[in-house]
Amino acid sequence: MVTYIIRRLIAAILMLLIVSMVTFAIFFLVPRLAGATPEGMASRYVGRTASEETAKLAAERLGFNDPVIVQYGNYVKGIVFGAEYDYGPGVETCPAPCLGYSFITRQPVWPDLLDRMPVTFSLAVGAAVIWVLVGVGIGVVSALKRGSLFDRAAMTVALAGVSLPIFFTGLISLVALSYGNPFSIFAQGGHYTPITENPIMWAYNLILPWVTLAFLFAAGYARLTRAGMLDTMNEDYIRTARAKGLAERVVVTKHGLRGALTPIITIFGLDFGLLIGGAVLTESTYSLQGLGKYAVDAITNNDLPKVMGVTLLTAVFVIVANLIVDLLYAVVDPRVRLS
């Protein structure tokens, strides 16, 4: 078991290194290969109107002329220990973890990300709770009542859920239940109250985005759970459980669901990891200032360090979520512990 954990940990760390290399390559190497000069890249830091001379100097000071390996080394060093940016007019200290400086705001990226994280996190956690409960619940009932009216209705709605994009369901919900029409029982977009300030307002403001996001995922989870339950309930060990005289409810929950949940844990790890890296569409639709919205704004402004910061952070979340899933797997399935 210990070797299993250590092996997973090492794999996760290696994965992180590779991700950092790839992001670095995309943001620093590819532009160079595409023909951007060191001066061109440095000029972004000093402003478009700067003279050629200043740009040259900045490029030298920011290290754009160094060999690629050294640049990558500095980049990683910045993340781990912090860095100092000397782009000419002055020196800016960027404490660890330094994910670079914004071109536009001249602010370090990391504190920005820290600001945005609670929003995305609140959105993701709330939605996840809803979609897991609803999705798995509907999936189980559908499987047990296969072919019934409930099953058919649920699966039809689920198919719609998987197919409809967030910006559609989101806007519909806003138009229908917000924006000052008679049914405006929910908050309009753009409001966020930290849970520490007022938990009720926190939930009230987030309920629409939660439901919209959960609808999409719940649909997929319902279908997945249903398929998994149908498989599991056909297993021999379910028949054994019934042969013991167990009540059907216990057979379903203790013996059936436990078997069917394993693939769902895997998918959930991936989905949740991705989501806390930014629910781009949901945040944009509801104007929530989360990581996703941050990334979209950064892309619009061509603010490379910000984009890179979000990318790296998302990758970290996905990798960590996967690591947790792997460990959970070993807890759920004793056979994993052996191999």
Binding site: D236, Y237, A243, K244, G245, H255, R258, G259
Partner: peptide, 18 residues
């Protein structure tokens, strides 16, 4: 399970792996 019980063919699949 009490008055009548059953033994199945393949004990590996007939027992819950978890």
């Amino acid at each position: 399970g009490k008055k009548m019980a059953m033994i199945f063919q393949d004990p590996l699949s007939a027992m819950h792996p978890y």
